[in-house]
Design a protein around this nucleic acid. Structure first.
Lengths: 213, 213
DNA sequence: AAGCATCTAGTCAAGTTTGACTAATATTCC
DNA sequence: GGAATATTAGTCAAACTTGACTAGATGCTT
């Protein structure tokens, strides 16, 4: 799974109706250009593709007041909402170690209920544990790990990553169980997108170390 | 940078001359189908593309003795070797957190000298530290991290990943400094590819948890 | 007031990745 | 000995990603 669809669906959904540039700005606000492949081309492509697939509804609109080409506004459909929730649940549970997907899931998790998120994260920890067990058994035959030479460091690295990932998830579970954040059905939600006219505190022109992907 | 070019160049280089299927098998031997996008399509594509760019030399050969279509053998060129070493050095130093790239670098690191690898890994740790500092300063303005709500967990997650990555790298540095593994110029190298006729202990048809990417 | 940059909104070609498919020989199993 | 399966070697279309580019309106500056 790639993170872009989840991100785009999440952004459109929070707005109710949004055009590409708005989505692009939201993702920048979330820092997604730093930890995912949320570049303009990918975003517009995802919007068009998902519109073609019936997950979004496209409305052509008049050229905006502020220059630039005419824009297309998108609304999420029922099928899109279903897909969104499916991707979101997957992103929080998946044992496979794609950081951009988990990050996207974290950004959207409050669209689910607190208890459900706790369940999904617990499932994540469990699945990572299983993966770990399978890998160590499979790649640690009787000869011992030494037979791999330096190649063994690759496995070593992945196991270490899995362990840190599980530890971190456990920490998040405790923060959420302790009452952090506002989830679906718990009243006034946190505003995670830029409302009309609000300027993006992170959209600067300055480069800083860490901007390279 | 994607890991596939580094992996393919590394495999061809170790063989001296190799056809696509051989490369494919090496990468499976390294487990690359589990932690990178080393699928047949990507491998053959990379071979063709790099041949087009002069990094590899393609030789058409007669159909193999063992069925299947005629195969193309590849040799690495001087430009290819340069590119390989450049990619390899980058993969070990890059602060950006792409695990498949680092994994590929680990698999190939012994093509460099021990001291150089130690230097590159130290540089990696340093760069991660800088990235961390820049990010915390940039995304932690006077209002404190609370203003981000749950979105802050994304940053939290990336910082945690960076820290674990740095710690692990430090561990690897110590193992290497302690004499582990055989690097370039240290005598008989570890054989990291499958020699003709050797069967691949990891090429099974069985699925096991962890095989999904 | 001319010139330069920036913001708005998006397109496009080239390159990459994916997953399914082809097609021949070899081996295994009943 | 015939059918099913595996192995060898690779192709291909569709989808996705990337980075550069377009083009009008506005703002900033010297």
């Amino acid at each position: 799974m790639s993170a872009i669809r989840l991100l785009v669906l999440g952004a459109v959904r929070q707005h109710g109706r949004a055009h590409g540039y708005q989505v692009r700005n939201d993702l920048e606000y979330w820092g997604a250009h730093e930890w995912s492949n949320a570049k303009p081309g990918s975003i517009y492509h995802a919007l068009k593709q998902m519109a073609k697939q019936g997950l979004l509804l496209a409305h052509e609109t008049a050229p905006s007041t502020a220059g630039g080409p005419p824009r297309t506004e998108y609304e999420i459909t029922e099928a899109g909402t279903e897909e969104y929730l499916k991707l979101l649940r997957e992103s929080l549970t998946a044992y496979d170690q794609k950081r951009d997907v988990l990050s996207a899931g974290l950004g959207c998790m409050v669209d689910l209920g607190r208890e459900e998120v706790l369940g999904l994260l617990a499932e994540r920890v469990r699945t990572i544990g299983e993966w770990r067990k399978a890998i160590t058994e499979y790649y640690m035959p009787e000869e011992g790990p030494g037979q791999f030479g330096h190649i063994g460091e690759i496995m070593n690295f992945w196991l270490d990553s899995a362990d840190s990932g599980a530890r971190w998830t456990q920490g998040l579970i405790e923060r959420i169980r302790g009452g952090a954040y506002t989830f679906a059905g718990e009243g006034e939600p946190f505003i995670g997108v830029l409302v009309e006219g609000q300027e993006n505190p992170y959209a600067t022109g300055e480069r800083h170390p860490g901007d390279d992907r």
